[in-house]
Computed example of a mutant assay.
Amino acid sequence: MRVLHTSDWHVGRPFHGRDLLAEQESVLGGLADLVADERVDVVVVSGDLYDRAVPSAEAVDAGARVLRRIAAAGAKIVVTPGNHDSAPRLGAFAGFAQAGGLYLRTTIAELHEPVVIDDVYGPVAFYGIPYLEPELARHALGDLELRGHAAVLGEAMRRVKDDLASRQARSVVLAHAFVIGGETSDSERTIAVGGVPHVPGSIFAGIDYAALGHLHGPQTLADHLRYSGSPLAYSFSEIHHRKSVWLVELDAGGLAGVERRELPVPRALGKLRGELRDLLTNPAYEPEVEKFLSIELTDKVRQLDAMRRLRARFPHALHLDWQPEGGRPKALRYADTVRGRSDEEVACCFVEDTRNSPPTTTERALLREALAAVAGKEPE
């Protein structure tokens, strides 16, 4: 059996305010071609199919089109919710979807009941463990003594292994969790609420393959224990990620091999640093024009309307920060900033602190007039 391990689609997620639905559908829809080319039998999505618990209608439509394309290419699909998804909403029509080859494993009470799919060697049991928020999960599992992520996931895996022991089947577990040894990026929502978020990889011992979700970088913790990562970059911290999926092969004895399949990059990420004038005129930056860009300006004085001017050359600049050479002025507490100063001195101090240069004579006159108008008297 050939299994395509994916996760963290986050359909509907923007990138620094930029709508990514078209790019998401293009990359995810391409999985259908991979299914056909590689003769994939099952595609698994280990959580965070959508980016929000209540996704937009456009995101739902895009996700549905992608799933239909994958199913039409000949693969069955197993999905379990992540911490971004709403498990009840995602699984609302699970019974109907199953008839079309889409298996939505969204309930904690049924996590030990696998989707069983046969190949020439016999059955493979796919167990979908939804994201387990500790406080809610311990009630759903019926054990109020369970505390923290490791405890609730450990109990979930105990139930999975108990069921597996009663079967003559190979096993694949889908889980959305932060396993010790995984590397994070800036685009993952913390799951620290409910205790220490990390769980040991030993929890998955005895499973032929554990298809992990939550962390957005593809990574291997053990041969049988891997994160596929997100199909697109969702933060500039992922600039060096090679977005991919895992092609998992199971034979009669269990895990036979795993290969990486890289995904297309709709638009590359880039980072630029320098003074505004140089960024706007230096031909060396021409290769960066079509990238999503995070730009750091180093001008000693904060430049006016910098993002608009940068986008005239770099239309996909999305993030701008100002880090002047030599550092920004030392920030003071408000009480220390205003103590013993007149209103005009406070206003001028604010201007200087904001842009790293004092107000000009003309600007001081304007500030003086504004303060006088507020006070209801003629400026001095």
Rank of each mutant, 00 (worst) to 15 (best):
H5Y: 00
S7A: 15
H10A: 10
G12P: 00
R13L: 08
P14G: 12
R18E: 15
E23L: 05
Q24D: 05
V27L: 03
V27I: 02
V35F: 08
D37E: 13
V40D: 01
V44M: 05
V45M: 04
L49K: 06
Y50F: 15
S56K: 09
A57E: 09
A57N: 09
E58D: 12
A59K: 00
A59H: 00
D61V: 10
A62V: 06
R69F: 06
A71D: 00
A72H: 07
I77W: 01
V79N: 02
P81D: 03
A87Y: 03
A87F: 02
P88T: 13
L90Q: 01
A94R: 05
Q98T: 08
A99F: 06
R105V: 14
T107Y: 04
I108P: 04
E110D: 14
L111R: 00
D118K: 11
Y121K: 07
Y121R: 08
G122E: 12
F126R: 01
G128P: 02
L132F: 10
P134C: 11
A140Y: 01
L146D: 01
R147L: 13
R147Q: 13
A151R: 02
L153V: 09
K161E: 06
D162K: 12
A165P: 10
A165N: 12
Q168E: 13
A169K: 11
A169V: 14
R170Q: 12
V172A: 04
A175Y: 04
G182W: 00
T184C: 08
S187R: 05
R189K: 11
R189M: 10
A192N: 13
G194I: 13
P197S: 11
V199I: 08
G201K: 02
S202H: 11
S202P: 08
I203F: 06
A205D: 12
A205E: 14
I207R: 05
D208P: 00
L212G: 03
L215F: 06
Q219P: 12
T220V: 15
T220M: 11
L221P: 05
D223W: 07
H224R: 11
R226W: 10
P231Y: 04
Y234W: 06
S237D: 08
I239W: 07
L247T: 06
E249W: 08
A252T: 14
G253Y: 05
G254A: 08
V258Q: 03
E262G: 04
P264V: 15
V265M: 00
L272E: 09
L279T: 02
T281D: 07
N282F: 05
N282M: 07
P283M: 15
Y285I: 11
V289A: 12
K291E: 04
F292V: 11
S294Y: 01
I295V: 14
I295S: 01
E296A: 10
K300I: 10
R302C: 08
Q303T: 15
L304F: 15
D305R: 15
R309S: 09
L310E: 03
F314Y: 09
P315L: 06
D321V: 14
D321L: 08
W322F: 04
Q323S: 12
E325S: 14
E325Y: 09
R333S: 07
R333P: 11
Y334L: 15
A335F: 06
R339P: 12
R339H: 10
R341F: 10
A347G: 08
C348V: 05
C348N: 08
V351I: 13
V351N: 07
T361F: 13
L366M: 15
L371F: 00
A372L: 00
A372T: 02
G376R: 11
E380V: 14
